[in-house]
């Protein structure tokens, strides 16, 4: 097991290098030049050259990349072109904002989805199942920009009970209640998708499990229904559930771009959009790195958890 973990971590190093190389190339190949944005239209050739050299983008790609990499190894993610602040100083506040939204979204989603998926599977093709499947289909299909704006219109503008966006009331005293109120709408919008998605996975795997011979054995033993369901049935559904969770988390860590934008949530998604608009290469590279690392980390965690929930899986 320990050996397996070390091996997996060693494998991630070349993968991460490849990811950063590709990201660097794509970011730099994208049309537009940072100098266009940070210097007046009337700037002289010399001023532009000066700007380019101060941003470090006057050098060839490979040198730029290796400089970036050398800094990275030292824990330096460079300076944001736009704000001139060290990226490493801004990154944690953005991650905290996104993780807050992610935690509330996934918590709500899974607490609802797992029982609903099980109920749906048990009542397969019945009224309750059709209702749950129908609503979850809606949850997956509804565009989040539309759903988000609709919720803002109803709850913020018409009813005035919830804030339109942000993480806390500007100039307010803050506090937990205030933050919770700001969380509600973006959480609903994101959970609509993540919860529905999970319901479908749980339902499908539970339907398969209910048809398994070992479930018949459990019934033939005369066990109580709750024991049959949780002790014998759901136990076997953890592998697909873990798979979904381990892809959901990196997906959200990469930033809930549209939703954060609509609700002015100061997380990674919003930061990414502003960085793209500002051709802020160091910020984009940092966000890409966070996304890539989280994919790799949660994949590894999922693989380790598989072994914990399924005795047939051993490393």
């Amino acid at each position: 097991m320990g050996k397996y973990i070390v091996k997996r971590i060693l494998i991630t190093i070349p993968v991460l290098l490849m990811v950063t190389v590709f990201c660097f190339i794509i970011v730099n190949l994208a049309p537009g030049d940072p100098t266009d944005l940070y210097i007046s239209e009337n700037a002289t050739e010399q001023q532009i050259a000066q700007m380019r050299s101060s941003l470090g983008i006057d050098q060839p790609f490979p040198i730029q990349y290796f400089k970036w990499l050398l800094n990275l190894v030292q824990g330096n993610l460079g300076f944001s072109f736009a704000s001139r602040l060290p990226v490493i100083d801004v990154l944690p506040t953005k991650i905290i904002a996104t993780v807050t939204l992610m935690a509330s979204t996934l918590l709500v989603s899974y607490l609802l989805a797992i029982p609903l998926g099980i109920i749906s599977a048990r009542k397969q093709n019945g009224f309750v199942d059709n209702l749950i499947t129908g609503v979850s289909f809606l949850g997956i299909s509804i565009p989040n920009f539309f759903f988000g704006l609709a919720l803002i219109y109803i709850f913020a503008l018409q009813l005035g009970v919830l804030p339109t966006g942000g993480m806390e009331t500007l100039g307010g005293s803050g506090g937990l209640v205030d933050r919770m109120q700001h969380l509600i709408l973006p959480t609903i919008v994101l959970a609509a998708f993540y919860c529905s998605n999970m319901i479908r996975y749980v339902r499908a795997s539970m339907i398969d499990i209910f048809a398994e011979n070992y479930m018949r054995t459990a019934t033939a033993k005369g066990l109580k229904e709750t024991l049959i369901l949780w002790g014998h049935g759901v136990r076997n559904a953890w592998v697909p559930i873990i798979t979904v969770i381990s892809t959901d988390i990196p997906k959200m860590l990469g930033g809930a771009i549209v939703t954060e934008q609509i609700f002015q949530w100061p997380g990674i998604g919003q930061w990414m959009i502003s960085a793209i608009n500002a051709r802020d290469y160091p910020v984009l590279m940092a966000i890409n790195l966070v996304a890539a690392v989280s994919v790799l980390v949660f994949n590894l965690l999922a693989d380790l958890l598989y072994a914990a929930v399924d005795p047939r899986i051993r490393y």
């Binding site: 398994e212 011979n213 070992y214 054995t217 459990a218 033939a220 002790g231 399924d310 005795p311």
Partner: peptide
């Protein structure tokens, strides 16, 4: 039952 390969719960 007939099929001992699938009649036992693999996770217990």
């Amino acid at each position: 039952f007939q099929d001992p390969m699938t009649s036992l719960n693999p996770t217990l």
